[in-house]
Design a protein around this nucleic acid. Structure first.
Length: 479
DNA sequence: TCCACTCACACATTTGAACAGT
DNA sequence: AACTGTTCAAATGTGTGAGTGG
């Protein structure tokens, strides 16, 4: 199958455009495909739910991607963050999801850094890259660096590829972001839709024990009636529940997996810009969105160029994306002159946020986590300032891999919740009044309407762009 | 009563240290 | 010494379903 990803190149100034024709960097043609898209789609059709727990829970299906088009010898950093699908809170009623009200204020925003980062393009491309160790939590006070989400809210992961030699230069680098419509999900503390439960059990090896229905009920009989257990439980309740001792965090090296499943087509939206820029700014209009024609048709849009938007939301923008993904641009492009106005990066402000380290389990400062200040305002909480502490959720990794030490702490400042108009699967009917102006029930919308679009793009966007355009995705700080 | 959330649990896979063999 | 392969116990990852608390 062919890749149905949408490729959005940057729109570059005329003068640079010519350079782009010959400059391999400008010619960057990074492609990302989601592994196991069929599995994702089977979940998506029902309405994917991801369990979030206090100690942190992995996702299933796991986020695993294939990348191509990177410069083999250039170094890249891979990041993942979760973006709100809309500004609503949902509830499961009977057999379907319904809007239950406005979304809760955005919790501390965190970004997961792939433990192999930074690594050369050849490393990322040689095999599928998995984010198996990434965990989701509903604990806003989480000390392990997991991604914090609200239960009963919808999100979807974004994958960022940053060309940077080390974590310190991330802020100066060019980002390319990809999203896959079928990866959207509703965060829950307990499964709501039994169909999802069944799919999980049928596909997740760890849930294998639940496949034999006959033994389940019997095996747990009298579990809670045992006095000893009750005492134990009581005791545990007395202890501070916040002291989660899970060892989760010490995730070990998350290597690239050998197995390389056949790639199925996956819709990908790619953005080249600084995630710190506002999503709305990037909103593009309608490319491929809602295409009833399927991937083939969407491919026609693959040449569409998105222009990084001019950011309208000023604060906390870290830097601008360089117009050129060239290595040099990663550290200097921003500056200034080089990128021209068409990118609108002018609104990006370089800023070094306060950084707070997040201790890992040993109590030592986590080498991989840094809390960054600034939580983008949430549409539903317009007055909220950027005072939130943001963390880069970085699992420990084996430093030896590829000889690329993981530079420790660096943080991300984050971002914001974007309440892009969404993608909705059938299970998510458009929010009731007052619904967002452009909430599309069809998941294909996701593809183009989301954050990926660049605001400046041709000047037209969705009606609700304004709502979320002011929220930068996130920013990083370096120590 | 309702319902989102928490917890200990049984059972599954994965990890990684220790060891053996080449 | 450097690798590779084998064990196997500990660590981890699952959904369950009763219980909690607002």
């Amino acid at each position: 199958t062919e890749h149905a990803y949408l490729k959005h190149n940057f729109s570059i100034p005329p003068t640079s455009a010519m350079a782009g024709a010959t400059d391999p960097y400008l010619q960057s043609n990074i492609r990302m495909t989601l592994e196991d898209p069929e599995l994702w789609k089977s979940f998506h059709e029902i309405g994917t739910e991801m369990i979030i727990t206090k100690p942190g829970r992995r996702m299933f299906p796991h986020c695993k991607i294939n990348i191509s088009g990177l410069v083999p010898y250039a170094k890249y950093i891979l990041l993942v963050d979760m973006v709100p699908e809309d500004g609503y809170r949902y509830k499961w009623n009977k057999d379907k999801w319904e809007v239950a009200g406005k979304a809760e204020p955005q919790p501390p925003y965190r970004t997961y850094l792939h433990p192999d980062s930074p690594a050369p393009g050849s490393h990322w491309m040689k095999q599928a890259v998995s984010f198996l160790k990434m965990k989701l939590t509903n604990n806003a006070l989480d000390q392990h660096g997991h991604i914090i989400l609200h239960s009963m809210h919808r999100y979807h992961p974004r994958f960022h590829i940053v060309q940077a030699d080390d974590l310190y230069s991330v802020r100066w680098s060019v980002f390319q972001t990809f999203t896959f419509p079928e990866t959207s999900f509703t965060a829950v503390t307990a499964y709501q839709n039994t169909k999802i439960t069944k799919l999980k059990i049928d596909n997740n090896p760890f849930a294998k024990g639940f496949r034999d229905e006959g033994t389940n009920s019997k095996r747990r009989a009298n579990r809670t009636s045992d006095p000893e257990r009750l005492a134990k439980r009581l005791n545990s309740m007395v202890n501070d529940s916040d002291q989660v001792q899970d060892s989760i965090c010490r995730s070990s090296y998350e290597g690239l997996e050998e197995e390389r499943a056949a790639l199925k087509e996956a819709e990908v939206k790619e953005e080249r810009y600084s995630p710190w820029g506002s999503a709305s700014d990037r909103e593009s209009h309608g490319l491929g969105r809602e295409s009833p024609l399927g991937s083939d048709a969407r491919d026609m849009y693959s040449t569409e160029q998105l222009v990084p938007g001019h950011s309208t939301y000023q604060p906390y923008r870290f830097h601008e994306y360089g117009k050129s993904p060239s290595p040099s641009s990663s550290s200097s492009s921003l500056g200034s002159s080089s990128s021209s106005g068409s990118m609108g990066r002018s609104s990006f402000e370089s800023r070094v946020p306060d950084v707070a380290t997040v201790p890992d389990q040993d109590g030592k400062p986590s080498a991989h986590e840094a809390a960054l200040p600034h939580c983008p305002p949430h549409p539903s909480a317009p007055s909220q300032d950027y005072a939130g502490v943001l963390n880069m959720a970085v699992p420990q990794s084996k430093p030896a891999i590829l000889g690329h030490p993981l530079y420790t702490p660096y943080g991300t400042e984050q971002a914001l919740g974007q309440w892009a108009s969404g993608t909705g699967s059938a299970q998510y009917p458009p929010p009731p009044p007052p619904p967002p102006p452009h909430h599309h029930p069809h998941h294909h919308h996701h593809l183009t309407t989301d954050y990926s679009s660049q605001a400046a793009h041709h000047g037209y966007h969705h009606g609700n762009v304004g709502d979320w355009s002011q929220y930068p995705l996130f920013s990083y700080s370096c120590w």
